[in-house]
């Protein structure tokens, strides 16, 4: 259920399933290859239809395993690239936020609160987390909005959204 909202988790699960199938199929392939070799060494010949079918099945299994392994490797590479991209984006976002906070000359405690506001935490919870009165948080928020020259929470957020969305157009 949760996986539906987190594509990364879904891919992770797909990789695990793929790996399990590869492993099972590989063990089956080894079994059939071994069986064919055993039959050959015990007097059967390749002109026997049954043995030919078995040999073909064994080869098909081996080919399938190699193919699935390549699929798994590509999937893992894609996942790694995506993780790298997300990490880079996070770093950029953090730099961007830092730059704005510097520009607005926020005090250290204002930076902390502004970050919590950006993360969508309400004043009530911020006050609890920081062990201060709600009134203090409200007053600090007002100062932050004043320094950033916005009307309130949604506008503060929109400053960063705008920066992010502009990248695509510029």
């Amino acid at each position: 259920m949760i996986a539906r909202y987190f594509p990364a988790m879904k891919r992770e699960r797909r990789a695990i399933t793929l790996a399990a199938i590869i492993l099972l199929q590989a063990l089956c392939a080894i079994f059939f290859v071994g069986d064919v070799i055993f039959d050959l060494s015990h007097g059967d010949h390749l002109d026997d239809l049954h043995l030919i079918l078995e040999a073909v099945a064994a080869l098909a299994l081996c080919a399938g395993v190699i193919y699935l392994m390549r699929e798994l490797r590509d999937l893992l590479n894609r996942m790694a690239a995506m993780e790298l991209g997300i990490r880079a984006a996070r770093g950029e976002m953090a730099d961007l936020i830092d730059a704005f906070f510097d520009q607005w000359r926020l005090t250290p405690s204002e930076r902390e609160i502004a970050l919590m506001v950006l993360k969508g935490i309400d004043n009530d919870s911020i006050a609890k987390m920081r062990g201060t009165a709600q009134g203090t948080v409200r007053a600090q928020c007002t100062r932050i909005y004043a320094k950033a020259q916005v009307d309130g929470r949604p506008q503060l957020l929109s400053i960063f959204m705008e920066e992010l969305l502009n990248v695509g157009e510029g």
């Binding site: 695990i16 793929l18 936020i97 830092d98």
Partner: peptide, 24 residues
């Protein structure tokens, strides 16, 4: 508080890297 210290390394101060794939 630096923004980057909270946004990309989590509470434990460690970064996690995917190393061992499911087949391994």
């Amino acid at each position: 508080m630096s923004v980057s210290s909270t946004s990309d390394c989590g509470r434990s101060g460690a970064r996690s890297v995917a190393v061992w794939d499911p087949l391994v």
